[in-house]
């Protein structure tokens, strides 16, 4: 028989555990929102879905063009492959942030109609980001064939790298969103911060072109670790650094802290959007 579930609304704040349970109860909405986003993404374009393939290609060719012009080096790895592996990680990271922070504003209409944990919106943006990352990864295959590169056995660690990648993106988004609920000043400088951050991350530049004494930045920057890891899973030549593992654990802690902070603050959304 159909059982009626009881919903309770109180003034109190949820514990981390309750917040996670609530997300789990509403998990099907993650797919609903993600499907909606994919449906409308290229709604008013001629090429439609094809843009999902063209966009990473376009980004890739711009970097490759300037890379060869300026003679940027990337060790033994062909530069095009180096850039694409960098872009997969970087694009997923920035997609989650830039779409995540505006997700609530974008769905005001729904937020004013039904209750669900607002973090659901961020998770669904992550799913869309993953979808794009998959397409970028598929573009890597013809490149690898062209340069006759044999993929390392370490490719089995891709899921872990993805988790690390998403952890960095979500942790950042939760914290930025939490501090931007009441006043949105921070969101104004966010695009500039992202464009600065790409220079501190080996997306299209190799760490080796930086002076030795600044190289530690790349070790302590978790998203730089993620991008190194993307190359690590594909190429045998790259060595694993212990600090990557530590940063992974730290990012996970920050993620849970960010999620808790966000769940704590999210009730302000319906009153302030």
């Amino acid at each position: 028989m159909y059982t009626r579930e009881t919903t309770t609304y109180t003034s109190g704040h949820d514990s981390l555990r309750t917040s996670i349970v609530k997300v789990w109860e509403h998990k099907n909405l993650i797919w609903v929102f993600a499907r909606r986003d994919l449906q409308v993404k290229y709604a008013q374009t001629h090429l439609g879905f094809a843009w999902s393939i063209f966009k990473p290609l376009l980004g890739l060719s711009i970097y490759v063009f300037f890379g060869y012009m300026l003679n940027w080096t990337s060790g033994q790895i062909p530069y095009a492959v180096y850039v694409l592996t960098g872009l997969v990680g970087w694009n997923l990271f920035t997609y989650i942030i830039s779409n995540g922070v505006s997700a609530v504003q974008e769905s005001t209409d729904v937020i004013k109609k039904i209750y669900f944990p607002k973090s659901i919106l961020l998770f669904s943006k992550t799913v869309v980001g993953l979808f794009e990352a998959t397409i970028s990864l598929a573009l890597l295959i013809p490149l690898l064939i062209y340069f006759e590169i044999v993929i390392s056995w370490k490719i089995i660690f891709v899921p872990l790298v993805l988790i690390f990648n998403i952890t960095c993106g979500l942790a950042t988004t939760f914290i930025i969103s939490s501090i931007s609920i009441a006043k949105r000043d921070f969101l104004q400088v966010l695009p500039y911060l992202i464009s600065v951050a790409i220079w501190l991350t080996p997306v299209f530049l190799s760490a080796s072109i930086f002076p030795e004494r600044f190289q530690f930045i790349f070790d302590y920057n978790p998203i730089a670790n993620v991008i190194d890891l993307w190359r690590w899973v594909i190429f045998d030549e790259i060595e694993f650094k212990f600090i990557w593992g530590i940063n992974f654990l730290l990012s996970t802690v920050v993620l849970f802290f960010g999620f808790y902070l966000y769940s704590f603050r999210e009730n302000k959304f319906a009153d302030s959007v």
Binding site: T6, Y9, S11, K112, K113, I114, Y115, A270
Partner: peptide, 19 residues
């Protein structure tokens, strides 16, 4: 509807809610 939180007090609803 659960769209906004109370400042104090408790609300309990049983079943699927449409608004």
């Amino acid at each position: 509807a659960g769209v906004t939180k109370p400042t104090s007090g408790i609300v309990k609803l049983k079943g699927k809610v449409a608004s």
